[in-house]
Amino acid sequence: MSSTARISNSNWLFLHAVCVFAFLYLPIAVLILYSFNREGVGGFPPHHLTLDWYRTLFGDGPMWDSVLNSLQVAAVAMAISLALGIPAALALDRAQFPGKALFRRLVLLPLILPGIITGLSLLMLFNLTNTKLSLATIILGHGTALISVATTEVFAGLQKLDRSQEEASLDLGANYWQTFWRITVPNLKLPIIGAALLIFTLSMDEIAVSFFLIGRDNTLPLEIWGRLRRGITPEINAVSAIIFVFSLVAIVLWYRLRVRGEGQPDVGTEITAAAEGQMV
């Protein structure tokens, strides 16, 4: 094969990559652009640029209530996932117990299972135990589904951890509890912060599980969903643009963490791990 063929192959691949990126970013660009369009949704070309939709949004009580609800849900779900995911990773790394392989698969399952199955099965549990649906049930749902994220992140961190420090701490008379807080956790700081950030973001965006566990108070995605069902409202463009900006901030934070931690797992390795976790 001649070198010209190779170059044209490269060009073809480059062109393909450009198209895929355009496909991935076009909708996001459209949303942001049209959030400044007075006519709101649709219509080409956009004209009469305005900040009206942002103004409407800032005066929108129910929308802000739902933002507060989502922040609460994400914070508590994050705490639950970490409180269970960190010990789960320690258990997978250090303990032998019957059903360990099954346990690992079960923990990872909600990450690859369609949200409807997680949501509905929990709904049946809450229904049978006469638990009233509320933000608390959503928190339990998110907390349970996202243990997977904390576990995979921390487990990956543990694989790289040198156990001699913990050993020294124990030899010098510290108990397990002291060793955990003074040696294990500080050494796993980056994976834990990374997991926390990822869990928080995923919980803020989650809708399929929340959909079935919602009580009287809406989370932000469900508030948006409710309005979309009633018809297109241009305010949604504005709120989407704001969500996008916050997501970008989270990514930049994440990226700086990663650079410091040299090859800490990211959302990509997370998903890859979930796919491969099925094999372990």
Partner: peptide, 30 residues
């Protein structure tokens, strides 16, 4: 990182974006 970024952007927001693009008064049709 550019491939990862859309994963962080809300599912709902992206699905809705396609609705504004594809609708009969949407961006693509106009």
């Amino acid at each position: 990182q550019l491939v990862i970024i859309p994963l962080w952007v809300s599912y709902l927001v992206r699905a809705y974006a396609w609705k504004t693009i594809l609708g009969s008064d949407g961006v693509l049709n106009t």
